[in-house]
């Protein structure tokens, strides 16, 4: 134990401020993705009290849809259209496709079990997760597919403009794609907060989340509201999938599993049901992971992340924003 502590301190020293910043940057970028996925878990839990285990796989499908668009336009190394419209189309197709998938999952796997014992939809969720993972595996032969995101828009296989630095901190660059990921995540989250707090759909969602039966007796078509919730949750996951593809450069059928698990962790730490909680905790999980890898070592990162979850749940079972979870979906 002493040796480990010594190693950590040594590593912190040797990486210096520059390393500390790099880890901060990496954590925030990764955490933004976790946040987007965590939002889906928390929204769906909020409205149906269901842990939608398939949510991480919706994110995987989103990444593949983005990849499909990229391939359809000739691939990253030789895209048929400009970079900006290409990325916009990738996002649009992935978000819409994932959204439709989410609605379909709810309609065919969960809705028939709406009045079944709580365990039944949970099992159904696991089933949907396996179904999506294994279907994707069969369709992709289990290979990792390369977005070639690093080369996207670049000439002769060199790094493209996505990896140009926007600014540097202590000599460490923050690249276009990192700004893009964090920027679009923040935009989407702001849009979500607006939707939930200000629009009628948002009010209907919160009403349904709080008391589905009462909401339906107030004229709210709760089935439709639940469908919309799945749509929004899945749209966010699809967007995260494309961001991941652009930032990391690979997609594979199993990618939703661990990302989903970490995002779920974030949703719980944030106080499941709380939208702001999921956002904050997503970034937090990303940061913990990043610093654990950088300072303690990669083999510890999952132990640290999930260890913190357990500790946190003991100290504060309702999560970060659990006390106010009632406020949001």
């Amino acid at each position: 134990m002493h040796l480990l502590l010594f190693n950590i301190i040594d590593q912190i020293r040797s990486l210096g401020w520059g390393g500390a910043f790099e880890l901060l940057r990496n954590g925030i970028v990764l955490g933004s993705l976790y946040s987007l996925i965590a939002l889906g878990y928390t929204m769906i839990y909020g409205i149906l009290k269901l842990l939608n285990f398939a949510h991480g796989d919706v994110y995987m499908v989103g990444a593949f849809l983005g990849f499909g668009v990229l391939t359809a336009f000739g691939g990253a190394l030789n895209p048929g259209i400009g970079l900006v419209p290409l990325i916009i189309i990738m996002f649009a197709v992935a978000m819409l496709g994932s959204g439709v998938l989410g609605v379909g999952i709810e309609r065919f796997a969960y809705r028939p079990l709406r009045n079944a014992p709580r365990i039944a939809p949970l099992i159904a969720a696991l089933g949907v997760s396996f179904f999506l993972e294994n279907s994707a595996q069969l369709m992709t032969n289990g290979f990792q597919y390369n977005y070639d995101a690093f080369q996207l828009g670049g000439k002769n296989g060199n790094f493209g403009p996505l990896f140009d630095p926007v600014f540097t901190v202590a000599g460490n660059p923050v690249t276009v794609v990192q700004v893009l990921v964090v920027g679009s995540a923040v935009t989407l989250m702001a849009a979500l907060i607006f939707l939930v707090s200000r629009t009628r759909l948002g009010k209907a969602m919160r009403a349904t989340a709080f008391d589905q039966e009462a909401a339906s007796m107030m004229g709210i078509d709760t089935d439709r509201v639940i469908s919309s919730t799945f749509f929004i949750a899945s749209v966010l996951a699809g967007a995260a999938g494309v961001m991941y593809g652009l930032y990391i450069g690979t997609t594979f059928y199993f990618m939703g599993f661990l990302a989903g698990l970490k995002a779920f962790t974030a949703a719980v730490v944030g106080g499941i049901g709380s939208i702001v909680g999921a956002m904050v905790a997503g970034v937090l999980v990303g940061l913990i992971e990043s610093y654990a890898i950088g300072y303690v070592g990669g083999q510890w990162s999952d132990i640290v992340v999930f260890g913190i979850l357990i500790l946190f749940m003991i100290v504060r079972p309702t999560g970060l924003f659990g006390a106010q979870a009632i406020q949001k979906v």
Partner: peptide, 20 residues
Amino acid sequence: GRNHISQQQQDFSSVVTAIP
């Protein structure tokens, strides 16, 4: 020097940071 990643992992940016 030694570090570890998992087969589930795709974001290696922090591992890269840790390399001397």
